[in-house]
Amino acid sequence: MRVNFTVNGRPQEADDVWEGESLLYVLRERLGLPGSKNACEQGECGSCTVRLDGVPVCSCLVAAGQAEGREVVTVEGLADFAKQRAEHGGCATGACGTEGTSLQDARRWSARPQDSQTGEGGELAPVQQAFIDAGAVQCGFCTPGLLVAADEMLERNPSPTDADIREALSGNLCRCTGYEKILDAVRLAAARQAELAEGV
């Protein structure tokens, strides 16, 4: 079947979709957006979290056909999404590249010569930068889902308590960090967000 929907602000069309395919599969394998991760495919880890019409969901449990006509934001679009939200003070949709990780890219991959420097490179959403700065990323496989979930929580609740953060992220498993630095990152993002708001 054919499925049309919007991803990170861009209309997308997927053809020859098998009816049992998940939104996650279509994003990863057909649209070249492998940022949403395939850790459990049973709704028990949150690594595939995307926003579907603004709401965080496990994309592995959305049938591709159910996304028809709807708006999806993935980690690839998070920075633009956050930027537009900051600029327009409301719900925003971002845009992002449609190229996936081609073998060419993978071959060429090498760590960037510079470390992921604090505060530099304004292309990241505040929560993305905070994850890097706080050491919340190790293997990084849980990171995209956590970022989408954390960003949405901060949108709803700009000054969360630790218990609020834990509850909001209780659907996202991480096996590397023990979560402490993830908490640090969300606190950091909230604090920076508050500083910005005060500045305005």
Binding site: E76, W109, Q114, D115, Q129, G135, G140, F141
Partner: peptide
């Protein structure tokens, strides 16, 4: 020093290519 991960930016933007992300 607590320098930051060189792959951090790629990992938070979804661009970091894991073995399940390969495509040909």
């Amino acid at each position: 020093e607590s320098t930051l991960r060189p792959d951090g930016t790629l990992k938070v933007t979804g661009e970091f290519a894991y073995s399940s992300d390969m495509w040909h």
